[in-house]
Each structure stands twice: as C-alpha cells, then as structure tokens.
C-alpha cells in the first residue's frame, strides 16, 4: 500500500530528473554554440590535428570491423532473400531488398552503433580522465575554450567518419551480397548493379547524408557531455556506461524519426 502511494512521487521525481537532465543538456549545447565566437582565438592547426587524429581513430581504425560486419550483413540478407523470396515469386527483388534493408536502415544504424561502442565510449573515458587529471582545468586557466577545443573537432571528425563508414558499409554489403547471391543463383553483374542503382534513389542518398550528419553530431555531443560530468575517478566508468547507453537510445530513436519523415 505504501509502495502504491509512493509510486506517483517516484514517477514525478524521475520525470523531473529527466526534465532537468534535458535542460542541462540543452544548456550544454547552447554553451557549445556560443563558444564558436571564441573560434578566432584558437589556432587552426591545433583543431586540424585533433580532427585528423579523431577521424583516424573513429573511421580508419574501425574500417576492418565495419567491412567485416557489412559483408556478414549483406550475405545474411541475400541468403534469407534467395531462400525465402522464391516462395512468394519475388526473387527478382533481391537488389531492392538490399537497398531497403542495408542502405536505408541497417547501414547507418550499425555504423553508428560501431562508432558509439568504439569511439563514443573512448571519447567519454578520455574526457573524464582529462578532467580527473586537471588537464581541462589547466586549459581553462590558459584561456582555451575547452568546449570548443574538445567537442567541436570531435563532432567534425565524427561526421566525416560516419559518412565515409556508411558509404563503405553499403558498398561492401552490396559486394558481399552479390558474391553470395552469385554462389546460389545466377544474376548478371550488370543486371544486379542496374537493380541496385534503380532501387537506390536520391531520396535514400539524402536520408543517408542527413543520418550521417545527425549521428556524427549526436555521438560526440552526448559522449562529451557525460565525459564532462564525472567529478571523481570512481565515476568515470559510470558516466562512460551512461554515455554509451544514452547515445545508443538516442540514435535508435532518431533513426526511427528520420525513417518516418522520409518514407511515410
């Protein structure tokens, strides 16, 4: 009975906490937007080096993993398609299926998940550690706008990396899909390519670009937010875990919203 009576308080407390969290995140985003006015005080070279290193870590170092996953996903889709589509008399739509499943949805989503699990967690852990080691404080004492210096290059690098990784993921999934399809049923390469090109519209391309920009912005933004939150070295794993989970949740919700906006 007491538990039932305390339920509204618990729910209300939780809702207020979420609302306060959203407000805090909003203020954090606003502070990053406002920090652009101090961009002229930063040396381009320092930002450039961070972008290059972050892109190498987020994009190039994740390439092997992304290619492997893309091959497996493409092959899985084709195996399922070649075994199940003939039952419905629609085996000619293998290319369309690849585009719909891989290029529209799985490509951007899986790429974002890989980036979150590799780079998102790394960004949160790196910033938390820097904060514990007083590095961020030292930068602030030196007059460096840490929000701009830490977050902005990571957003830029993340956008570039996610865009390239999605393109490579789609291409590899198509090639993997074709190789598997060729081993089970003969499809002329030109016909397969033609089906893919026909099925892949400019709208799909625009959706992919928008997804890469939004994911590329959200992943470092949320991970840096939680990285800045840790106030002791014991909180580092807590906030890293929180950063990964909340970024994953946000990305999945955003993916659904973009799909609804584009394809409904």
């Amino acid at each position: 009975m007491q538990m039932l009576l305390s339920l509204p308080f618990t729910v209300g407390k939780k809702a207020l906490k979420i609302w306060a969290g959203i407000g805090d995140f909003g203020r954090y985003c606003l502070s990053i937007a406002l920090s652009f006015k101090s961009l002229r005080y930063l040396r381009f070279r320092s930002l450039y080096v961070i972008v290059i290193n972050q892109t190498r870590f987020t994009g190039i170092d994740a390439l092997n993993f992304v290619v492997l996953i893309a091959l497996i996903i493409g092959a899985t889709v084709i195996i399922q398609a070649t075994t199940n589509l003939p039952k419905f008399g629609t085996e000619g739509f293998i290319g369309n299926l690849l585009v719909i499943i891989v290029a529209r949805e799985l490509g951007p989503l899986i790429t974002a998940l890989i980036v979150i699990s590799r780079s998102g967690s790394a960004i949160a852990a790196e910033i938390s550690t820097q904060k514990q080691n007083q590095e961020i404080l030292s930068m602030e004492i030196m007059g460096i706008d840490t929000r701009l210096y830490i977050v902005f290059p990571r957003i830029l690098a993340s956008i570039l990396s996610i865009f390239s990784l999605i393109m490579i993921f789609d291409l590899t999934a198509f090639i993997g899909g074709y190789v598997i399809a060729r081993s089970t049923v003969y499809i002329a390469p030109e016909a397969f390519l033609q089906t893919l090109v026909d099925a892949f519209s400019l709208k799909d391309l625009l959706a992919t670009l928008i997804k890469s920009i939004i994911y590329g912005t959200l992943v470092p933004l949320i991970c840096c937010y939680y990285g800045f939150k840790a106030s002791s070295k014991f909180e580092v794993p807590i906030f890293v875990s929180r950063a990964v989970i909340r970024t994953l949740f946000t990305i999945i919700v955003v993916n659904v919203v973009i799909s609804i906006l584009f394809y409904f």
Partner: peptide, 12 residues
C-alpha cells in the same frame, strides 16, 4: 595520418 584520412574521406 593526413594521407590516410584524406583517402578515407575522398574515396567515398
């Protein structure tokens, strides 16, 4: 690194 990153972005 610059070369690798450049290729990584420019090819796609």
């Amino acid at each position: 690194n610059e070369l690798r990153v450049g290729l990584f972005i420019l090819i796609p």
